[in-house]
Amino acid sequence: MSDERSPVPEIDTTVPHSARIFGYWLGGKDNYPVDREAGDRVRELFPQIVDLARVSRRFLGRVVRHLVAEAGVRQILDIGSGLPTVDNTHEVAQRVAPETRVVYVDNDPLVFAHARALLTGVPEGTTQFVHADVHEPEEILRAAARTLDFDRPVAVILMGVLAHVADYDEARSIVRRLLDPLPPGSHLAVRDGTDTDEAYVEATRQYNAGGAVPYNLRSPERIAGFLDGLELVEPGVVSCPLWRPEATAPVEEVPVYGGVGRKP
C-alpha cells in the first residue's frame, strides 16, 4: 500500500466527516466527538440508520464478489472508500482472485492515515491509496493510472459518494468523465440513499444542518440515471438488500438503492 498524492491536509476534528460517521455507525472507533454527535442525532431521528449502514456494507461485498468472480474484473477503483473495516474491497476481491489490483480514493486525511497502515494487499495483487476528491475525476484517473491499466476493464465503485455532489447534472458529468477513458467491459457500481422514507429524509435534513458536507437524497430513478448507457446487471437498480441476496430468507426493502452496469 502506498499513497499517490501529497501533501495531505491536517485532520479537522471540528467538522463531522461522512466517512468517520459511517464508520461510527458500523461500530468503528476511528472518529471524534463531532462525528459521534452528528451520528447520534441521525440515529435518534432514524434508528434504522445503523441497519442501513450494515446493509450498504454487505451490498458492497456482494458487488465486489460479482465483479471479480462472475464478471472477471481484475482492476477496481473504489472512490469514497471510507475507513478500513472488515471485508474491505481489496480483501473481498483478492480472496477470489489474488492478482486483483485495487486503488482506493478518499478525501479524509484520517482515512489516508489508516489506509497506509491497514489496507495492505496480498503479494500477488496491488493495493494503493489516492488522496483526492470525487469532484476531481481527471486527477483521480491520472493518479490511478500509475497502478491500473486503462487498456483493460476497470470497475469503478461509487458507494454513498455521488449524494455528496449537490447538483445532479454535475454528478452525472463526474460519472461520464470517470467512465469515458475506460475500455468496454468496464463496470460502474453505485449506491446512495433515496428520498422514499419520510423519517430518513428528515434525519438527513438535520444531518445536513449540522455542518457536515451535505448528503443529498435522490429518487431511485435518478440513482438509476447514473447507469444510463450501460448494460444493467440483473436485477438492475433496486433497494440494496434485493440486489442478489445471498440469504434464502425474505429481505425487506430499505431507502438505499444500488446497482451495477457494464460498459458495452
Rank of each mutant, 00 (worst) to 15 (best):
D169E: 15
A69H: 12
V260C: 10
D3Y: 13
E124F: 09
D151L: 10
H66C: 05
D149E: 14
P264D: 06
G229H: 02
V190F: 03
L110H: 08
L119K: 02
V237D: 03
D12A: 06
G121H: 02
Y104F: 11
R222H: 14
V73D: 00
V55C: 05
L141F: 05
R54E: 10
I76A: 02
G185P: 04
E136K: 13
F22K: 00
A117Q: 15
E252G: 01
R218H: 05
P255R: 02
R142Y: 14
E198W: 06
G225K: 04
F129D: 12
N107P: 06
K263D: 00
D197A: 01
E246A: 11
V254S: 03
G193N: 03
R205Q: 12
G210Q: 10
E10W: 00
A171H: 02
V86K: 15
T248Q: 13
G72E: 10
P123V: 09
V201D: 07
L67N: 04
L158C: 00
F129S: 10
I157S: 10
E198D: 10
G72S: 12
G261N: 11
Q206S: 07
E138H: 15
S173G: 14
P98W: 08
E246D: 14
D12P: 08
E252L: 09
D51S: 08
A189H: 07
E124H: 06
G261I: 01
N107D: 14
A144E: 07
L148S: 03
K29V: 02
L110D: 02
G27M: 06
R65K: 14
S18Y: 08
D51R: 13
R191L: 15
A163L: 11
V55Y: 10
D133K: 14
V50C: 01
E91F: 13
P137Y: 01
D35C: 08
S239K: 08
A144H: 12
L77I: 07
Q75M: 09
V237R: 04
I140M: 05
V175Y: 04
V63S: 09
L77E: 03
L182S: 05
T14V: 08
E10F: 00
G72R: 11
V254N: 02
P181N: 12
G61D: 14
R152I: 01
R5G: 08
T126H: 09
V34Q: 08
A38I: 06
R146H: 15
M159I: 10
S239H: 10
I79S: 11
P245K: 07
E91S: 14
P183Q: 09
Q206R: 15
S186W: 07
V122Y: 10
I49W: 03
R95V: 00
V15G: 00
V213P: 00
R222Q: 15
V233W: 06
W243E: 04
T85W: 02
I49L: 03
N107T: 04
A117F: 01
D195H: 06
T126E: 15
K29W: 01
R205G: 12
N31R: 11
D149T: 09
N216G: 00
S81D: 00
R101T: 04
G211F: 12
Y207K: 03
V15D: 01
E138G: 12
G259T: 07
P183G: 11
V161W: 03
